[in-house]
Design a protein around this nucleic acid. Structure first.
Lengths: 174, 174
DNA sequence: AATGTTATGTTATAATATAACATAATATGA
DNA sequence: TCATATTATGTTATATTATAACATAACATT
């Protein structure tokens, strides 16, 4: 399980970040919440940490199990409320196509994102694409449709999971 | 509830089609299934008809109620199996953002679609956009990601429901 | 009719998410 | 500091969406 280079420089969802990178994401979140006078509570911090540490987007009940593992009392509303908060703050995204949640790669700016969701390993990459956003906007305006939010979720196979892919260091074994 | 002009000429999901248009959609479906040696059973026909007649995309349990209203015995698997079949045949689409199902506007060709989903009235327009599809494809290939299916769901307000919209015939009342 | 295949019926349950109300923690102002 | 308001969390129950597993029925082919 090697960590690959990534264009997003430490704040991306396309790989499992190191503990230092997670810490940095959490710190960013803390600052954002402070600026907005929102409470970044222990629970919210814990949930965001779990999401940041995950290899791939996680389901609500998966996260809930981790909370319960903490010894903490946790029922479904516990996790859904935390997720709602984190989404409202733009710190995480929800993937409608598989009901999972993942850390936002760029919590600073308000943006529309595109997600490349690997059907084989689940790893999901958030990418930015003015091109797509603009195409949608342009098309929508032709229908006098006022865009509030655009969800683009691309199902497919990531580089590692594409047929024929052989990891460079493994010589095709395993 | 007037029927507006629509670029899709009778086979669109942006409005409630007339009974003649529904009939035509069903006939198309029947022909496609025959060509593919698939059984277009009474149940499947009924479900597709319900979806075609709907003003806006319908939930599975909503559809199920209609089936039960028919006097027919119907449990969840009844409707989900019909929906699965219709999706496999490309006759309907599923919107992941709100768990609803709507008739495909162009069942003939295999296509990627973009959906403009009105948050106020629920009406949903399927549009075709090579631009968006190509943008996604191009972006994905830069990440060596093999695209299998692209889902684009745009939440917003349709022309009728946009703030300030006044229906031409109502003079701003109601 | 006998047989295999596909579709549907039926029961149960899984997976995802929210409502409603109680308690606890935090913030604010007197 | 205390009283109060507000926000967050705990708790119980339930709603919503979807599937598993197995039985029966319909259909297709011989």
């Amino acid at each position: 399980m090697s960590v690959h280079q990534c264009p997003h420089a430490g704040k991306t969802s396309c790989m499992r970040p190191t503990s230092l990178q997670v810490e940095s994401l959490i710190n960013q979140a803390e600052q954002l919440c402070e600026q907005r006078q929102q409470r970044f509570t222990a629970l919210r911090r814990r949930v965001l940490t779990l999401i940041c540490q995950a290899e791939s987007p996680m389901g609500a009940y998966q996260l809930l199990e981790f909370l319960q593992g903490d010894g903490r009392s946790a029922a479904p509303p516990t996790i859904y409320r935390a997720l709602d908060f984190l989404m409202a703050q733009g710190l995480i995204h929800r993937l409608a196509s598989n009901n999972t949640y993942l850390a936002c790669a760029h919590p600073q700016q308000d943006h529309e994102a595109v997600f490349l969701v690997c059907q084989h390993c689940g790893q999901t990459q958030e990418i930015h694409t003015d091109g797509i956003t603009h195409s949608v906007q342009e098309k929508a305006s032709r229908y006098k449709f006022k865009v509030l939010h655009t969800s683009v979720e691309v199902a497919g196979l990531c580089a590692k999971c594409s047929p024929g892919f052989n990891p460079p260091s493994a010589g095709g074994l395993a």
